[in-house]
Amino acid sequence: MPGKIRAETKKYPEKNVGGFMKEAVLYQKLEKENIQCNLCAHRCVIHPGKSGICKVRENVDGKLYTNVYGRAIAQHIDPVEKKPLYHFYPGTKAYSFATPGCNFHCKFCQNWEISQVSNERILEMGQKITPEQIVSNAKYSGCTSIAHTYTEPAIFFEYSFDVAVMAHKEGLKNIYVSNGYMTYEMLEMIGPYLDAANIDLKAFRDETYRRIIGGSLQPVLDNLKKIKEMGVWLEVTSLIIPGINDDPEEIRDMANFMAEELGTDVPWHISRFFPAWKMEEVPATHLNTLQLAEATGFEAGLKYVYIGNVASNRDATRCPACGKVLINRMEFGILKNKIQNGRCPNCGAQISGVGLG
């Protein structure tokens, strides 16, 4: 996939673009007005008048532009648990926003209406909202953090970066909910302003990434390690899909990678798949499969493993030392948080996370 481009004809009628165009960061000029975008691991080489795989970054006369700066397609106030982040300021709210587009084309995408859209539709979607307004709205609504989410924050990075810088100035935290396909250059740039991330580990086979998702596995693995090394609070989500990534051996490989390369303190969210977009014929994940994955995570040494998208008590946080329930949750809400000064009140064990109580 690296270097491949999605060739799309430039269509920038002023009435549609308005103030959404902005010169991009992290690109280099090549011969004959060609451009290489260095924002995500595709590193698209883009010819004049064409756009990259994400469809929102275009070569205009030898310069790279984003056409989604300030183009908010979604804005919501969410529980931070919905990201999902269970060990980062539990019980608080995150002001969540996104623009259209994505650099992946997952056939099982849950947000395909806003991520998998044509160039023409992108130019018609969203409303103008400045970074200052995003931050102001977050503060006014009493949020602790701003979540760059729903689609892929890497593809609206210029917008996201400006929001993140302003958020920190106002005492707000920044969260990335991402597919993990960014470049090191992008991570280095956002690093000082990024407080937490939930990264999708969508499979543990490169063939699956190339066939079903539209990318490759290794950049995601490398970025998971990089984010952890940067000191950003990290949690990982894996959507378990029947016939795609539910093989017990593959799940074991995922769990072992996390334990050995990221550390046993990194929470792993195992989510149930429901039929969506181009995979509506695939059945929902059986609960037994999710329970097996949960057990595999614990067997690998992970301290915090959660099952998501199910009606059960599998999302409670337990002390890894004594097993006592420390945080009870229901539908992304906190029923009770017993953690005191980051420790289990029963045995005194340190509980991994940030702002736990």
Score class of each variant (00 low, 15 high):
Glu249Ala: 14
Val266Tyr: 09
Asp265Asn: 11
Asp265Ser: 10
Phe273Lys: 04
Asp247Thr: 05
Asp247Glu: 10
Val236His: 00
Glu249Thr: 15
Thr237Lys: 02
Lys278Glu: 14
Phe273Ile: 01
Pro248Ile: 05
Glu235Leu: 02
Thr237Glu: 08
Phe274Arg: 12
His269Glu: 04
Ser238Thr: 14
Glu250Leu: 04
Glu250Gln: 10
Asn245Met: 06
Pro267His: 05
Thr264His: 08
Asp247His: 10
Ile241Cys: 02
Met254Val: 12
Ala255Met: 12
Phe273Tyr: 07
Leu239Thr: 10
Val266Trp: 09
Glu280Asp: 12
Leu239Ser: 07
Met254Phe: 08
Asn256Val: 15
Arg272Glu: 11
Ile241Phe: 01
Val282Thr: 11
Thr264Val: 13
Trp277Ser: 10
Pro283Gln: 05
Leu262Gln: 03
Gly263Asp: 07
Glu280Gly: 15
Glu261Asp: 13
Leu239Asn: 08
Gly263Lys: 02
His269Trp: 06
Phe257Asn: 09
Leu234Val: 04
Ile270Pro: 00
Asp265Cys: 09
Glu261Cys: 14
Asp253Gly: 12
Arg272Phe: 05
Ile240Trp: 00
Arg252Met: 13
Ile241Asp: 00
Val282Leu: 06
Ala259Val: 10
Thr237Gln: 04
Pro275Trp: 07
His269Asn: 07
Ile241Glu: 00
Ile240Leu: 06
Glu261Trp: 12
Met279Lys: 05
Val282Arg: 02
Met258Trp: 07
Thr237Asn: 11
Trp268Leu: 08
Pro242Gly: 00
Leu262Glu: 01
Asp253His: 13
Val232Lys: 03
Ile244Glu: 06
Leu262Met: 06
Pro283Phe: 04
Asp253Glu: 15
Ala276Thr: 14
Asp253Arg: 14
Thr237His: 03
Phe273Trp: 04
Val266His: 07
Asp246Gln: 00
Pro283Gly: 04
Met258Pro: 08
Gly243Asn: 02
Glu261Lys: 15
Met258Asp: 08
Glu260Leu: 15
Met258Arg: 05
Ile270Trp: 00
Ile240Gln: 01
Arg272Thr: 08
Asp265Glu: 11
Asn245Ala: 07
Ile240Phe: 01
Pro283Arg: 02
Glu235Val: 01
Met279Phe: 03
Pro267Ile: 03
Lys278Tyr: 13
Phe257Cys: 11
Pro267Phe: 02
Pro242Asp: 00
Thr237Arg: 00
Leu262Thr: 01
Glu235Asp: 05
Phe274Ser: 09
Glu235Pro: 03
Thr264Lys: 12
Asp246Phe: 02
Ala276Cys: 14
Leu262Ile: 06
Ile240Asn: 01
Asp247Lys: 06
Gly243Arg: 00
Ile244Trp: 07
Phe273Met: 03
Asp246Gly: 03
Glu250Cys: 05
Glu261Ala: 13
Met258Cys: 11
Glu280Thr: 14
Glu261Pro: 12
Leu239Ala: 11
Ser271Ala: 13
Arg252Tyr: 13
Leu239Met: 09
Gly263Phe: 09
Ile244Val: 12
Ile240Asp: 03
Asn245Ser: 06
Phe257Gly: 12
Val282Lys: 01
Asn256Trp: 14
Trp268Gly: 04
Gly243Met: 01
Pro275Val: 10
Pro283Glu: 07
Pro267Arg: 01
Asp265Phe: 06
Glu260Thr: 15
Asn245Val: 08
Gly263Ser: 08
Pro267Met: 05
Pro242His: 00
